[in-house]
């Protein structure tokens, strides 16, 4: 039980990072972006590439940090990949979504996002191969925190959780302390008033893609660090991330954080009663439950 809970919290932090960007895009641009989870894959592979590049440039940095399998080069790659993925998200918006938006039709955007997801996922597969990859071949043993009840945790898992929480904290501080954060919240609440208050929606959309893409990259890297990297990473995470945004309520950043943890924990704890083969279906059951009980999610507002 406690092991499932611990695993759930870790997965939850990854889902939360992914869901923050998705909920912002879904709220602002009013479409369910099925390609958002592919940004996690983009980030994960991006870090794999930069990790290799940095290690080639300065082999001394390719050392594991403490008892982690994480190296200094990979730590550096996290930051670079977040930036690259953020800009990729902006580029995809420019190339596809913005143009579809101009033609009109929110549902066409959903359509387009499926196409984009398929293209991204399979291009990654073509470039990096279909087999799973790891950031480090070093075997890092899990530390036994307690033997009864059994609780095993890997140092990388602790790092991922802490780093994810740090990113969320930074975002929280930005939203609650800076005028840029106020502007983000203002646009989410009332785009028209935000515009007449001098906020350029176009610029905010770019920033939302940057933030969403950056956080998605971090999520993908942490997933790769604690599991493995493969081209179908996005496909496997798209439904849990949607579940997290719906649980939290579309448009609510804090809801997305909470929703991510709830979905992560629920999916893992559900394995106590369900055979493990069924775990991909659990997020769907969560979505159904939320739609049945409280369609606006925990923090969402009615905005049909």
């Amino acid at each position: 039980m406690i092991q499932h809970l611990a695993d759930g919290i870790l997965v939850g932090s990854i889902l939360s990072l992914g869901a923050i960007g998705l909920t912002m895009v879904m709220h602002m641009l009013r479409f369910a972006n099925f390609s958002h989870a592919e940004l996690l894959s983009v980030g994960a592979y991006c870090a794999l590439v930069f990790d290799g590049v940095f290690a080639g440039v300065h082999s001394g940095l390719a050392q594991a940090i403490g008892s982690l399998s994480l190296t200094w080069t990979l730590a550096l790659s996290i930051i670079v990949s977040m930036a690259v993925t953020g800009f990729s998200a902006v580029a995809i918006d420019r190339l596809v979504f913005r143009r579809v938006r101009a033609l009109g039709g929110e549902l066409s955007m959903v359509f387009a996002s499926f196409g984009v997801a398929m293209i991204l996922r399979n291009i990654l597969g073509l470039i990096f191969g279909l087999q799973a990859q790891l950031y480090s071949r070093d075997i890092v043993f899990a530390v036994m925190i307690s033997s009864d009840p059994l609780l095993l945790i890997k140092p990388d898992q602790v790092f991922s959780l802490v780093a994810a929480l740090v990113f969320m904290m930074i975002l929280h501080l930005v939203l609650s302390r800076t005028t840029f954060g106020y502007a983000l919240r203002a646009v989410a609440e009332n785009p028209t008033l935000a515009q007449v208050s001098g906020i350029s929606l176009q610029r905010m959309i770019i920033l939302i893609w940057l933030i969403g893409g950056g956080l998605a990259a971090a999520a993908g890297i942490f997933y790769g660090l604690t599991n493995q990297i493969n081209p179908v990473l996005g496909r496997d995470l798209v439904l849990p991330i949607f579940a997290a945004t719906i649980v939290g309520g579309i448009g609510s950043i804090y809801g997305a954080v909470l929703g991510g943890f709830l979905v992560g924990i629920a999916s893992n704890v559900a394995l106590l009663i369900l055979p493990s083969g069924y775990s991909p279906a659990v997020p769907f059951l969560i979505i159904l439950a939320v739609l049945l009980v409280r369609p606006t999610g925990l923090f969402g507002e009615e905005r049909p």
């Binding site: 106020y182 919240r185 609440e189 008033l193 007449v196 001098g198 929606l201």
Partner: peptide, 28 residues
């Protein structure tokens, strides 16, 4: 472009929803 009007010196106060409810007064 509506977001450039302020810089030109024209302010617009909508009839409803003319403040950001989720921000504090100071933040507004």
């Amino acid at each position: 472009r509506p977001d450039t009007m302020g810089a030109a010196g024209v302010a617009y106060v909508p009839q409803t929803d003319n403040i950001f409810r989720t921000l504090t007064i100071r933040q507004n």
